[in-house]
């Protein structure tokens, strides 16, 4: 964080998507933290300072909604912007995401350029 890089936490259990997002965002110069489960994500949220969270909804141990809810109710990082990335395309899932405190929703499959634009919109360029 000392070099002024923005730090993004990516929570995704699909290895291919996680690696792709890591590759795309690392190229843009962001500092990345990766978590493959809700449990890992929540421990990172409580220990680290984060500028943006990108989360899937269907995750082991705690789903995306629970993670966002815990982030918003926690003492640290409770104002951090959250982007949901999910394969759920129905209105209820999207609305529920915004109701628990997400700032954006991207449907899978993701377009890498769209992901970068939305991240820039939330936390700006590096």
């Amino acid at each position: 964080m000392g070099d002024g890089k923005k730090r993004i936490l990516i929570i995704e259990d699909n290895e291919i998507l996680l690696n792709t997002m890591q590759f795309v965002l690392a190229r843009e110069g962001y500092d990345l933290l990766l978590a493959k489960s809700g449990k890992e994500a929540l421990s990172l949220v409580s220990d680290e300072t984060i500028d943006l969270v990108i989360t899937d909804l269907a995750l082991p141990f705690a789903n995306g909604y629970e993670i966002i809810d815990r982030i918003r109710k926690g003492n640290r990082n409770n104002q951090v912007p959250v982007i949901i990335i999910s394969g759920y395309r129905d209105d209820n899932s999207i609305v529920e995401g915004f109701e628990v405190g997400a700032n954006d929703y991207i449907k899978k499959p993701i377009s890498p350029s769209e992901l970068v634009s939305r991240v820039r919109l939330r936390i700006g360029h590096v």
Binding site: N14, K108, P109, I110, S111, P112
Partner: peptide, 12 residues
């Protein structure tokens, strides 16, 4: 297949 399901848009 896994990549096609993951990456959309023009890259897809």
């Amino acid at each position: 297949h896994e990549f096609i399901f993951t990456i959309g848009g023009e890259k897809g």
